[in-house]
């Protein structure tokens, strides 16, 4: 028996109309509509498109949760084994809709889903980690190439076959690193790669160099003599005994510590929890990592308005950037709420 597939498309691909019809409310038609015809051919006898869910792009954008729930409902009603959305190419609202409904159906029903988007479609970054996205051209001229890839990726999932490397499957990378065992040890892979590189032959790196975020610099503090300054560190300085159990490496949390009345971080009162450097010097004098003593002096002398009575600390050792970012957002929020004007971040 063929697998039952539900297909999501927008008003344009359903032939209802262009921008002027983008507000059109959802409807479900039995069987194939528009690009579903080509998909039907690509799926062959193995899977059948039993229904097509059509929604105007603006309507979706304004009612994302409600329409996503309706798509889930329709998939249930038609006893769908899988969902295909799009292809949406470089259409921003349509692409976001396709990726959203895929994620919603996957989460609610745990059935295979797939869509096809252009690399720079905003839907990609929003959902690339959650759902498989076939790489499509930037316009409907790429339909011929996207459709067979969509069918292949969907059928593989329906049959419970593991998906290969993104490049082999025609998928956009999810950007998630996964461990695997190669045929050869790393050393031999490295020497073989160097030989190819020296010969000018093509080779594939196992890890493309990372790219990091950039932020716009903040304006300077207008008057340091009235400013409230906070201390934050990734050097792992914590009260002795590490009360929040911050891990020596790959920290999963940060600590918030009151230093009201503390003028100097003393050995035996504070320590480092960091497992990535020789702890001897930080444990002897934690001010070497978190300069509370000097800031108290400057506070007393009036060079700064005040030292914020709370410091924040985590361990920046084997700690994932995503974790560090989430700590930073939360710490930033708390500092802002406490009307701190500037932060000195120390790292080891």
């Amino acid at each position: 028996m063929a697998y039952r597939v539900i297909h999501y498309i927008n008003q344009f691909f359903a032939g209802i109309g262009g921008e002027e019809k983008a507000d059109v409310a959802p409807e479900v038609r039995e069987g194939v509509v528009g690009p579903g015809m080509a998909l039907k051919g690509a799926l062959g006898n193995e899977a059948e498109i039993v229904a097509t869910f059509i929604c105007g792009d603006n309507h979706f954008a304004n009612n994302m949760e409600a329409v996503s729930a309706q798509v889930v409902e329709a998939a249930r009603k038609y006893r769908a084994d899988a969902l295909i959305a799009g292809p949406a190419f470089n259409a921003g609202r349509y692409g976001t809709a396709c990726a959203s409904v895929c994620a919603a159906v996957k989460n609610a029903l745990d059935i295979p889903v797939v869509t096809a988007l252009y690399r720079e479609n905003p839907g990609v970054d929003l959902f690339r980690k959650e759902i498989p996205i076939v790489e499509a051209a930037d316009s409907a001229r790429g339909m011929g190439k996207a459709v067979p890839a969509l069918a292949r990726v969907l059928l593989k999932q329906l049959k419970g076959e593991a998906l290969g490397a993104p490049a082999e499957e025609g998928l956009l990378e999810k950007g998630i690193r996964q461990n695997m065992f190669y045929e050869q040890p790393g050393a031999e892979r490295a020497v073989s790669m160097l030989i190819k590189k020296l010969k000018g032959e093509p080779f594939v790196t196992e890890y493309a160099m990372p790219v990091f975020d950039r932020v716009t610099p903040r304006p300077p503090v207008a008057d340091m003599r009235t400013a409230r300054i906070a201390l934050v560190t990734s050097g792992g300085i914590v009260p002795f005994g590490n009360p929040d159990h911050i891990a020596a490496s790959s920290a999963q949390n940060f600590g918030q510590y009151d230093i009201t009345g503390v003028t100097d971080l003393l050995q035996g009162k504070y320590q480092t929890a960091h497992g990535g450097y020789d702890q001897t010097y930080a444990n002897q004098d934690p001010d070497r990592v978190l300069p509370v003593d000097v800031l108290r002096d400057l506070e007393k002398e009036g060079a700064i308005g005040s030292l914020h009575p709370v410091f924040y600390s985590t361990v920046g050792n084997g700690t994932a950037v995503a974790k560090a970012k989430s700590f930073g957002i939360e710490i930033g929020k708390r500092l802002k709420d406490a009307q701190v004007q500037a932060v000195i971040l120390t790292s080891t």
Binding site: R218, G235, Y277, D278, D285, R288, V289, L290, T348
Partner: peptide
């Protein structure tokens, strides 16, 4: 954006 170079990894400020 604003970077102040320090002394050494195990004791940046000492």
């Amino acid at each position: 954006n604003r970077i102040v170079p320090t002394v050494s990894i195990p004791h940046p400020l000492g």
